[in-house]
Nucleic acid binder design. Structure first.
Lengths: 183, 183
DNA sequence: TTTATTTGTTAAGCATTAATTAACACAAGA
DNA sequence: TCTTGTGTTAATTAATGCTTAACAAATAAA
């Protein structure tokens, strides 16, 4: 019995990688990747792990252990979908499955060092809650600067002009919950 | 380079299975299981999946992917106020300063090992968002069990009956955002 | 104690297959 | 046209997953 369906093709396409591109990152032949995707061969655990890391994914996702279901309340970390980053070095991930009648929009922000929201101040309706998971974030609210470290949080109305910037040497992670949902 | 550390031994011991016992369930030789546990051989994906199901576990767990870490908008971690715990071993902290006209209520839950919400199912209005910061939380939604590990999240309507329990050996921490605020 | 199970480990060999190289057809530009 | 890039497949080889068998050590039963 052959195992079929290593989900590398979709992930590869999402990252806009060719067979040879991924193969070189992983350190195997392009032919092998093709054979995996077409279900002709099951990879070894070693290469499967390499592929997972090369795709910023997990073995779990590649072997299809994820519960996929419409209106699924559960979202595994590995299944987070990233949004188009509004600025360089700013990654945003949805913390919920799509297609849900939500009142809140929980996001995860990952900011590279020195990454910021840009010069423009954001201003919109609703409210926002920020909790720092890792790193240090500088948030400007109405010309007032707040330095948020791990565990610190912030709650403000979205119509107050706001900016933010990662002032940590490493990556800063923050849970960002917005109401109402905009994405 | 050899892959070491397929976590089958601990899981096998937990289920009080011998090498031969597990081997017969999986359909392989006891020798193979031993070689896996001692890191002499990496299993094929096919047998790895069989082992996972035989142990009521997942490939992800076996390869070790889930072990696995005043109107003032600003709230420092040290200034968090704790709420009266509704159950033993369940600590709740407000993640906002009080006296704020909020649409959301962000909380931090800290659960001692085995601590739970009790037998009664909660049911109220609004919506809830849960994100695991540390540990492992079991959440029951309408008779469906979800195992949330670090980074996993959950979004559900509050009127669906729900329970939760810390099934980690250590403390479990979760960000819990409720709308509308109730505290 | 003696005997008998049961435990986990290892050696050796086999059979499976993961992975390679090479060549292939097809499409998109230059 | 020629070139470059795409994905796929055939054939071969090298690697290794898996087996059987025998092993010592621990526990249980006689």
């Amino acid at each position: 019995m052959k195992i079929v369906g290593i989900n590398v093709k979709n992930l590869r396409k999402e990252k806009d990688l060719s067979l040879r591109g991924l193969a070189s990152k992983v350190g195997v032949s392009a032919s092998l990747i093709s054979q995996l995707e077409t279900g002709k061969v099951a990879p070894s655990l070693e290469t499967l792990k390499k592929i997972a890391t090369a795709l910023d994914s997990t073995v779990s996702a590649l072997v299809g252990e994820n519960i996929v279901q419409t209106n699924n309340p559960f979202l595994r970390k590995a299944d987070r979908k990233s949004l188009n980053s509004l600025k360089e070095g700013v990654q945003m991930f949805l913390l919920t499955s799509k297609d849900y009648n939500k009142q809140m929009e929980p996001l995860l922000f990952k900011l590279d060092p020195k990454a910021s929201s840009g010069k423009a101040m954001y201003k919109h309706f609703g409210q926002e809650f920020v909790l720092i998971i890792k790193g240090t974030l500088e948030v400007m609210l109405n010309d007032v600067n707040y330095i948020l470290r791990k565990g610190d949080s912030l709650y403000f109305n979205s119509n107050t002009p706001h900016q933010f910037k990662n002032i940590d040497r490493g990556i800063t992670e923050a849970v960002w919950v917005v109401t109402p949902p905009t994405f």
